[in-house]
């Protein structure tokens, strides 16, 4: 079973994302900021990461840069999932090594479409 780590400081968003991803057949883990997410990834790299941008402790961009510098950290497909929606911000995320970008609000169809496009089917 493919795994997806949901990184978001909102419990509600984590719950919504979990439901969508579980319906798609993923095993889901949750982290509430970049620090928790790094701890997860040091233990076991997920296949995909749904990543919020603005979070306390360590934000999504900082997490992404550290992740990509880790051994095996290039492998997970990272999809930003954030309220940020300016073209320059999306470009910045892609340049930093994100694979895809979802602008909130989102739904199951959008998440499924992005994962399919990246070739991460559960």
């Amino acid at each position: 079973m493919k795994t997806c780590l949901v990184v978001d400081d909102s419990r509600v968003i984590r719950k919504v994302s979990r439901r969508i991803l579980e319906d798609l057949g993923f095993e889901v883990a949750e982290a509430s900021d970049g620090v928790e997410a790094m701890a997860w990834c040091s233990a076991v790299m997920p296949d995909a990461i749904l990543l919020d941008w603005r979070m306390p402790a360590m934000d999504g961009m900082e997490f992404l840069r550290r992740l990509r510098a880790e051994p095996g950290g290039a492998r997970p497909k990272v999809i930003f999932c954030t309220v940020e929606n300016e073209i320059d911000q999306i470009r910045e995320a892609l340049d930093a090594g994100a694979d895809e970008f979802i602008m909130k609000p989102f739904d199951g169809g959008i998440v499924a479409g992005k994962l399919a496009y990246l070739g991460v089917a559960a």
């Binding site: 929606n85 073209i87 999306i90 995320a93 892609l94 994100a98 169809g109 496009y117």
Partner: peptide
């Protein structure tokens, strides 16, 4: 709309071909 550009369009194509 923001929803429409997230249907089937990759973030790279969005950045390449669209403006806000």
């Amino acid at each position: 709309s923001q929803f429409e550009v997230q249907r089937g369009l990759s973030a790279r194509n969005l950045v390449r071909h669209f403006e806000k």
